[in-house]
Design a protein around this nucleic acid. Structure first.
Lengths: 242, 242
DNA sequence: CGTTTGATTGACCTTAGTCAAGAGGCGTGG
DNA sequence: CCACGCCTCTTGACTAAGGTCAATCAAACG
């Protein structure tokens, strides 16, 4: 049986963009103090989302995009008759919801992998502000462009080894981008979600992780992964090494 | 040996957006006559690209996004040491190049699959106009959002049958969107490119197409595919039918 | 302290990739 | 005009990568 998804998510809590730890990598990146105030008018107070809760349900009417303030999320599509397809993960400082602009409906449910905070940004307000603040407009395009790239990056490496190596490197790079260690990775998602996202079986993920550990490429401690040989992992990710 | 890629592409030829057959589905969709004129100032004259030529080379500095006026293109990434990875196709009325906004370099080479025409849209000009014409700004976001969806759609259906069925349906929908038949599909790309794009072997594509024909789901005539049973194809694409 | 959920490992089997051969089309040049 | 070579596509036989099923174990939770 599934854990019921509670959409009655939590209370609001106030922190201005100016004082947010993510000011340098989130939407306000590179904006002047005064532009920051303009943006702030758009940002609704942070919303607390408990682990397992959905901040967005697939099919809901599109209203806002979201920025992850802390924690992490998975985006999942529901295929006909219930099978779940994980399409990606959103980490702190990253945004999601852009996929819904075209159809005006969220294509994916977005579910917290741990207790998290998000900022809600009503899209109509964003458009208004973006037209006035050129830097913001540009940054929005950049953000969406990044989303484009990250989607394709997970793409179609032929072998399972390549996909997993690429997945780890991808996480590593995204953590490094916000000043965290590039070699110490905490997986906030279960193996099952990784497997689903990469189009592999859970057992395969488990076997491959063990294999990487045996080759001293990584050190596994539950959901904590330590990358020991980044170079080799890169070679594996592009099929240069078996 | 590979056919050398010629980037000395052809002469310009003038057609205004107003008189373009794609005015209803391309960038200018929904714009007033006067806005159309504003946009027009951005659109450089159409560029003719011969079959096999690259209009964009991976790694080039990002300057413009492009709209396909006629013909079709494939986008390919070059993995380390030469293997080519097809990441998608662009049909008439569709745009490409947005992936390069973030990094300021084109991530993919974009190669004509047949003699084609494209409109080049310098991105800095677009930004300027978009800030003045709200409808254009919105439409740009919508276009990028569509790109996001199309990338994920090709995604990770588990079986080869599902992927191919989904690919055909995807093409069908995109052709229908610009008023063409949803059941008569001309594949402008060789089987090899389809296979590459779907992460399958050419032989598998061939076998699966034959299998679909035997089951009277499609009728194959070289690169012309006629969809006989759309409903069944949809069921196959989501794994309801073997 | 039992129950549940997630992770690991082994044995077996299915799917799709690889290798190989051959057929049909098309353009080039003798 | 025909012959040759080059593509692209198809089909068959074999193989390997990864999925499925099943058992076990550890940690989390009420």
């Amino acid at each position: 049986m599934k854990k019921p998804i509670n959409t009655q998510h939590g209370q609001h809590c106030a922190t201005t963009c100016e004082h947010c730890a993510l000011v340098d990598i989130c939407l306000p990146v590179g904006l002047s103090a005064e532009d920051l105030v303009t943006i702030e008018s758009v940002v609704q107070k942070s919303i607390a989302v408990k682990s397992g809760e959905a901040i967005v349900q697939a099919g809901q009417h599109f209203k806002s995009v979201f920025a992850v303030k802390s924690g992490s999320f998975k985006s999942t599509a529901h295929t006909q008759l219930g099978k779940e397809q994980v399409v990606g993960f959103s980490l702190a400082g990253e945004m999601f919801g852009f996929d819904a602009i075209a159809s005006q409906r969220y294509a994916f449910s977005v579910i917290a992998l741990e207790d998290s905070l998000v900022c809600e940004l009503p899209f109509s307000d964003i458009l208004t502000v973006a037209a006035q603040v050129p830097k913001l407009q540009t940054h929005l395009f950049v953000t969406m462009s990044q989303n484009l790239n990250s989607m394709q990056a997970i793409g179609l490496q032929s072998t399972a080894d390549e996909r997993l190596a690429n997945f780890l490197l991808n996480l590593s790079a995204r953590l490094a981008r916000r000043g965290m260690s590039a070699t110490q990775i905490h997986l906030s998602m279960p193996r099952q979600d990784i497997a689903n996202c990469l189009g592999l079986a859970t057992e395969t993920i488990s076997r491959l992780l063990t294999k990487l550990q045996k080759k001293s490429v990584i050190k596994i401690d539950g959901r904590d992964i330590l990358i020991l040989d980044l170079r080799l992992l890169q070679k594996i990710s592009c099929g240069e090494v078996v």
